[in-house]
């Protein structure tokens, strides 16, 4: 069991390493993507900065608190392209018939897909978000203890796992429809709502972001727990559980898709 897990991890690292070496051949692309990542993540900061120059709070949240939620979302969203961007290849692999080969190798097809590419924009996303997060942490009122740090890290890891599960689910649509991207992208667009305190939305959206597409757990609830506010701060501690459930669903759907898979062409 452990040996198998270690092998999976080792292979994953190898695949990703090879992909990175491949990308590094194009230095210009590397910098363009990092720049693009930084620009993208800064957009919301422009909005928040402009708005909070005029008002002290938004629905009861201060500027640093808003930046904290926003940048936490950015970190979670930015880390994934670095090590699991391959999920976006699933549709193309399936429709070009190359997914067949993945099934003839002694390594999990899902891990092969995930490790198939790397998005350097994630580096830009993560760097920009980390900078914002650092600034925000210095300006919010949190009593830091070793316990808080530890739980915070667990919540962060869970949030990343959760978002990946939701991406796997969105992209698994490729097994059923010819254009998987639109589904996954729509899922992501809904997820963008999770960059802000969900109290500003109506009940329907709040429920959607908490249950069916639980993006609120990828940033808002963990941040609310850290800040000890937002009404249901304790909900943030449920992030690991939500992540686990989302992975159960993701694996179930991916495997259903596998079974559904018929390779196209000859």
């Amino acid at each position: 069991m452990t040996a198998a897990l270690l092998r999976d991890l080792r292979l994953y690292r190898r695949c990703l390493g090879a992909v990175i070496r491949g990308i590094m051949e194009y230095v210009a692309d590397f910098w363009i993507l990092i720049g693009a990542g930084i620009v993208t993540q800064s957009l919301g900061l422009v909005f928040l900065g402009v708005v909070f120059a005029k008002v002290p709070t938004l629905a009861g949240w201060t500027f640093p608190e808003m930046v904290l939620i926003y940048s936490l979302f950015g970190i979670v969203a930015g880390v994934l392209p670095i090590f699991a961007d391959g999920i976006w290849n699933l549709g193309r692999l399936i429709h070009e018939g190359r997914f067949d080969y993945l099934l003839t190798r002694p390594y999990s097809p899902l891990l092969q897909v995930l490790s198939r590419s790397m998005g350097f924009n994630g580096v830009g996303d993560t760097l920009a978000s980390l900078a914002m997060f650092g600034w925000a942490v210095a300006h919010v009122d949190v009593a830091w203890t070793p316990g808080t740090v530890l739980v915070g890290l667990v919540l962060l890891a869970s949030a990343i796992a959760l978002r990946l599960a939701l991406l796997v689910i969105g992209n698994s649509a490729a097994f059923w429809v010819r254009s998987p991207f639109v589904f996954a992208i729509t899922v992501l667009r809904v997820g963008e709502l999770g960059r802000y305190p969900i109290g500003i939305y109506g009940l329907g959206i709040r429920l959607l972001l908490t249950t069916a597409l639980p993006f609120a757990f990828t940033a808002f609830y963990p941040a609310a727990w850290l800040l000890g506010r937002g009404g249901q701060a304790w909900l943030g501690l449920g992030t690991p559980l939500v992540a686990a459930l989302a992975w159960l669903a993701a694996l179930k759907i991916f495997n259903l898709g596998l079974r559904r898979y018929e390779s196209s062409g000859h």
Partner: peptide, 18 residues
């Protein structure tokens, strides 16, 4: 000059949005 269209699009759309 660059193979990477996505990066160009993201950067352009970001700047344009602001």
């Amino acid at each position: 000059w660059t193979e990477n269209h996505h990066g160009v699009v993201w950067a352009r759309d970001g700047v344009a949005a602001v």
